[in-house]
Design a protein around this nucleic acid. Sequence first.
DNA 1: GACTGCATGTAACGCGTTACATGATTTC
DNA 2: GAAATCATGTAACGCGTTACATGCAGTC
Lengths: 179, 179
Amino acid sequence: MNTSTSTQRVLLGLLEQAPRHGYDLKREYDERFPNLRPLRFSQIYSTLARLDRDGLVTLVAEGAGQGPDRKEYAITDSGVSDLEQWLATPLPVDEPPRGELFLKVTLALLSGREADTVLEAQRAVHMTRMRELTAAKASAVREAETVLADYTLFHLEADLRWIDHTTKRLRGLAQEYRP
Amino acid sequence: MNTSTSTQRVLLGLLEQAPRHGYDLKREYDERFPNLRPLRFSQIYSTLARLDRDGLVTLVAEGAGQGPDRKEYAITDSGVSDLEQWLATPLPVDEPPRGELFLKVTLALLSGREADTVLEAQRAVHMTRMRELTAAKASAVREAETVLADYTLFHLEADLRWIDHTTKRLRGLAQEYRP
DNA sequence: GACTGCATGTAACGCGTTACATGATTTC
DNA sequence: GAAATCATGTAACGCGTTACATGCAGTC
């Protein structure tokens, strides 16, 4: 079962700590990962349903508890080994990039538009965002926040380097596309 | 109409050069962007159908030509302005990251597993991939290839920096998660 | 007659988003 | 009694993937 994604694994990881129902999972996710891509309720419930169907998770209690009916799920053995395997396997690094910025530049050049301004505009947005993030990082309370901010900052920097690098090569690229 | 994605825009961009049918679009994409995420036929056809439905593209000829029936599409005025707006608008840069590696480290720490080995394993994979890409870049024929390789290389480097950076902070993070 | 290449799709599924529906309990 | 919070979902859609279906034309 190597098909599931990191969303499924987060839920498995949280359920490994203790059985929980969907609402609690959502709250704990929001609390622990406020700066990661948010998870909606609907996504949590549908992901739980799939995990259940695939035997990585089991319904251990239903209807009990205060308030409306709740469904408490627990991780299964096969869920634990799935999680373990995920942790042990590095992220794939050989996937071809989406290259949205590259696409923009290429399509601009192909159609004889100004690719320069595309890169300049992106550069400005990146600079602004880096300043924001640097400020946010300085006032961060938890170390996890700064570590995550650094992740984004490093990649924004990588983009900036590429933007500058590519700006210098625009003439050569243009010739390649319109010979 | 700001909803469409870069896949839609690539097709629009190619169709702006000349009307084409799906099969040709696929071939031209493969030729021009062999190192980007591949587009399947099914995706091209369904994307074309959506573009048609949204008025960004129009069917200009059907059935004509040698071989089986073909459907030739042309970009519309509204398609051109969509493309232009896409080129003029920088990529959003304020979206929260997916942070898969961050998630792995966090979940490892939460469950008392070795987060160190997670980062080490990832580091090794990254190093290997960087060597491969550097070699590929050296033997690249087109400048577009090297520019795209640089994009990936810069981001692999950013990941590596983050991996090293985070490795040094593991103790602090661990304390934060298990107080 | 079989195979390859050309050309177009459909079906089913995964994952994600937005919007909506349903009820029960707690609080004012 | 109204409103907020708790808790669970469904429906419809977008985009992407894999697998499968169809049928024509030219080649061996």
